[in-house]
């Protein structure tokens, strides 16, 4: 290492001055490629290439048992995988659940993050402790967070049902029941209990992420605008809605976009909380079901591709719409 760098150190001065800039730029370019190459190769080989290959596999008949003998260069393409995946009775149900989960989880976690940021914005005794505690749900390993929720909500020995029992309610299996029979004066909305619980988990786990961004933005806002509005007699809520909130649009839309994409692609949370049962099966969980439950690699690849395609379409729509609004 040291010898090679020493050799290149003495290199440049020996060359003619007129050609030096040209060779320097070229050498820099070569060095640049050399430096990024290992990282690029690893990411290409294990992220980009697999994604492309996934597209190919989704048109092939591949089962897990025949994986070792399967010839991947056999371009005998078929749409059978898509037929199989979309033909399942609960395919559209999974799509619907994915959207409810994503939109619900995203909006609630951002709203809660906003609330948390407003709560700790101004100083109070113990603020640093509260701020640190608020990061816990996001920092804790997903397996630990999901497991604690499962135990807390357990219908036989969970603390949540113990408290419900204390105020005279029947135990509720929050993560195991599809619908909750609720009757409010003849109107029975039957809320999807397990799905709502999972969304609540999402809000709890990811509000710290929104909180960090929003707090940073809130503290960077110029105080003059708020003070001017105060002098003009605007109340606290008016100042929030007409002065603060408009200035937060940038962060909020970035947060919404990021959280939407990540929640849409999320697998761990639902898999660990319910395993996809009780009306909470999102597409990602269904993909892994096809792979691990039915050993159908082709179908799993096809469903994965559909998931990515749906997200891509959504993003195109979002950017189109957003772009027009900005220029209008």
């Amino acid at each position: 290492m040291t010898t090679t760098s020493a050799a290149t150190d003495t290199g440049p001065p020996a060359r003619p001055a007129s050609r030096r800039t040209g060779t320097l730029a070229r050498r820099e370019a070569r060095l640049g490629i050399l430096l990024v190459l290992p990282a690029v190769l690893v990411v290409f080989g294990l992220v980009i290439f697999p994604v492309l290959w996934n597209i190919s596999m989704s048109f092939q008949r591949i089962r897990l048992i025949e994986l070792r003998e399967f010839n991947f260069l056999d371009f005998d393409y078929t749409l059978a995988n898509f037929d199989r995946v979309m033909g399942v009775r609960d395919f559209w149900d999974n799509v619907r659940v994915t959207f409810i989960y994503t939109i619900g989880g995203t909006t609630l976690s951002i709203a809660m993050g906003m609330w948390a940021a407003l709560t700790v914005k101004s100083a109070f005794r113990g603020r640093a402790v509260v701020r640190g505690l608020m990061l816990f749900p996001y920092v804790a390993p997903i397996i630990a967070a999901a497991f604690v929720w499962r135990v807390m909500l357990n219908p036989t020995f969970g603390i949540a049902n113990e408290w419900l029992d204390a105020v005279g309610f029947q135990p509720i299996d929050f993560l195991g029941r599809r619908d909750f029979e609720l009757n409010l004066f003849g109107w029975d909305p039957n809320p999807p209990l397990a799905l709502l619980t999972v969304i609540a988990f999402e809000a709890w786990r990811y509000f710290p992420f929104a909180f960090l961004f929003i707090l940073a933005r809130l503290q960077a806002l110029p105080a003059e605008l708020d003070e001017a509005a105060k002098v003009d007699g605007a109340t606290l809520s008016q100042r929030f809605f007409y002065v603060t909130l408009p200035q937060m649009r940038g962060v909020l839309s970035v947060l919404f976009l990021l959280r939407f994409i990540w929640t849409f692609n999320k697998f761990d949370d639902i898999f660990l909380l319910t395993g996809g049962g009780a009306g909470t099966k999102v597409i990602t969980v269904a993909v892994i079901d096809w792979l691990r439950g039915r050993f159908d690699v082709g179908a799993a690849a096809a469903l994965g591709l559909l998931l990515a395609a749906m997200l891509a379409v959504l993003l195109v729509i979002y950017f189109r719409w957003f772009y027009e609004e900005e220029t209008a």
């Binding site: 730029a25 640049g32 690029v40 994409i261 990602t284 892994i288 994965g304 997200l311």
Partner: peptide, 26 residues
Amino acid sequence: EFRLKKVISWGILVVYLFPAVVIAIP
């Protein structure tokens, strides 16, 4: 300064967008 440079900042974004399950199967 080199040719691949633009591809890299662009590539990071693409990787962000891909669902882990899609990468997991291949």
